[in-house]
Design a binder for these strands. Structure first.
Lengths: 342, 342
DNA sequence: ATAATTAATGTAATCGATTACACGAAAATA
DNA sequence: TATTTTCGTGTAATCGATTACATTAATTAT
């Protein structure tokens, strides 16, 4: 139907050159006011649309940024992406989404695809911490493409990151459980090669030690982030000579599983057993027995990552900037652990 | 650090022309086997990466597709996007995300931005049904960019769609509530200018009539998709001379709010009151009092939309195809409405 | 041995926009 | 009036890849 209109078409119609049209459209001050107006009006009347691919090729900037996450259908990552999109949209950037499904091979592939696609930056949460993809990360940096890690980061030279203080988060929850009078607190951890889980565990450990309690590795259970994993973990724990009377789970889903299993065993929550999760998934506050959790402010994390990226973009110089932003976690105390009503 | 390598660099090194390099890399059969091998190896050793922007400009295809949704941080839309990404990724397409926040102006803007960005297709859920953006939609079609609506559609000539049978969904839930012995069923609807809500309402209405029950508009409450809206709606309903004994909510969140409010009033669910939602949000099955809901298979919807897009892409001819795919809804009966244990 | 094919590569235009440089005309200055 | 500036446009190269159309070399056919 409607053929693509280029600046050449406008130029032809006005008997001027494409260069003039281009300058007029870009408000180049060297263009006569009358010409500019004429070009603008003609462009509008011909329904001209700038071909951003041509611009991208010529300028070397695609105005696209890539976002890599394990999966998009998780409240946390979706919210981060929302934040990124909202912050970047006003600046004319489009957001390209990639998923790794926790697979390092996919991660590597995504990195290359995005680089090939000439994105102007990559914001991502790493999949795991093997150094398998370190070369790929360095490759990004060497190509002068700003790379920013959010939530799950790795230490790569020249890469900025936006995370939350997982140590503090773990510490806060554990301290809270201790304050509720819990005497033996178990911890569900995730993949300990990831800093986030390592730090939550450390926070847990230090909170225990700081309160004069003992840290015992056998109360740390590595589990997946799923309801079933939580149930299984409780089954294991309840066979101990001294079963715990509280759980700090690094995953809200596992926390939920734990609660379900404990209830199946007629254990009273929070009277006899306290449970707390991490991430503040929407469902934690919806439950009748709402679940205590740590909020990671994903929206803010996304926006902040975007801002760090924008900053990095501005420095056209080859200066390598490395910014580490750490957001504060927020403890939401709910019924699953609130013994005392304030 | 590493300068961008182009086919000209390879050509220079091998003392041949860029054309030959291009052909070799594209496995053009006219190229001598030895040359091809040499080029391939040199390209690899020089760490050559094809500049997809150049390719895009030249071919007029960006290998990007745009996805427009009201917001990404909703389980439904995130899952659809996941489906789209997974289906399109193997075909070399990247997915660009845009959000409208239910704002038609943003929708319009996103459509134009994506068109400017030369996306090869647009997959979207419309924001509302004013004809405000109809020109923009037709513009997309006229530019020969495949446009596919999912979930929330409009009838635009030449636009395909993938939806679920909302009428059937509404009918199934309502029929189920009737089967549970409910005598007066209220309905929470959404924006009735949207087909999805119109059809769910119709399904509700026909299920009532088919069972010899009366349909009364005053039991249809238009509410937002939020917990609070659900609570308020219950407050209104309970003031009626004859309050309902069941609710079919078009939104899981409103259904949850309704349940909370009903419980606050010490009404027994499901014994004295049944509640059902729509969308099968993850939390509906997590609750202690799990919530009956209708699954819309968002993942499948995303994949199907992607497939319809791919089909459309193949037909390079100017033939206008219009495909309407309707997925089957699936009723998940849970505690909030299950009076009889099967 | 010569003409006709075929195989392999080179030449140059193209996609659409930007921009350094060139240039003529008008305006300002001497 | 002659000369220098300034202003507004035009010319042409560039970004990196693809490809229709030569062109040359090698092979086959006559």
């Amino acid at each position: 139907m409607s053929e693509k209109i280029t600046i050449y078409d406008i130029a032809e119609k006005l008997n001027i050159t494409a260069a003039t049209v281009s300058r007029a459209l870009n408000n180049n001050p060297k263009i006569k006011e009358s010409t500019r107006k004429l070009v603008m009006e003609t462009a509008a009347s011909m329904n001209y649309k700038q071909n951003r691919l041509a611009l991208a090729l010529q300028s070397g900037r695609s105005n696209n940024i890539g976002v890599i996450v394990p999966r998009i259908d998780s409240n946390f990552f979706a919210s981060v992406i929302r934040g990124i999109e909202e912050e970047l949209h006003p600046h004319g950037f489009q957001v390209i989404i990639c998923q790794t499904h926790e697979n390092p091979k996919r991660e590597n592939e995504n990195l290359h695809t995005l680089l090939d696609a000439q994105v102007d930056g990559i914001l991502m949460s790493v999949t795991d911490v093997t150094d398998e993809n370190d070369a790929a990360f360095r490759n990004i940096v060497n190509n002068n493409v700003p790379l920013i890690f959010f939530d799950r980061k790795k230490d790569i030279n020249g890469v900025s990151s936006v995370t939350i203080d997982d140590f503090k988060g773990g510490y806060m929850v554990t301290k809270h459980l201790i304050d509720q009078g819990c005497k033996c607190i178990a911890h569900f951890s995730g993949d300990l090669s990831l800093e986030i889980f390592k730090n939550r565990l450390l926070g847990y450990k230090h909170a225990l030690l700081d309160s004069g309690m003992t840290f015992d590795e056998k109360y740390v259970i590595q589990s997946k982030s799923s309801v079933d994993a939580g149930k299984e973990a409780v089954e294991t724990l309840m066979q101990y000579d001294i079963p715990p009377d509280a759980i700090f789970s690094s995953s809200d889903f596992a926390a939920l599983g734990a609660i379900q299993e404990l209830r199946a065993r007629d254990i009273n929550i929070p009277a006899d057993f306290c449970v707390a999760g991490f991430s503040n998934e929407p469902f934690t506050k919806f439950m009748e027995l709402s679940i205590t959790s740590v909020d990671q402010s994903p929206l803010e994390m996304g926006k902040m990552s975007a801002r760090v990226f924008l900053e990095q973009m501005e420095k056209t110089d080859k200066i390598m900037i490395e910014k580490k932003v750490v957001l504060k976690p927020e403890l939401h105390i709910r019924k699953s652990s609130a013994r005392t009503t304030h």
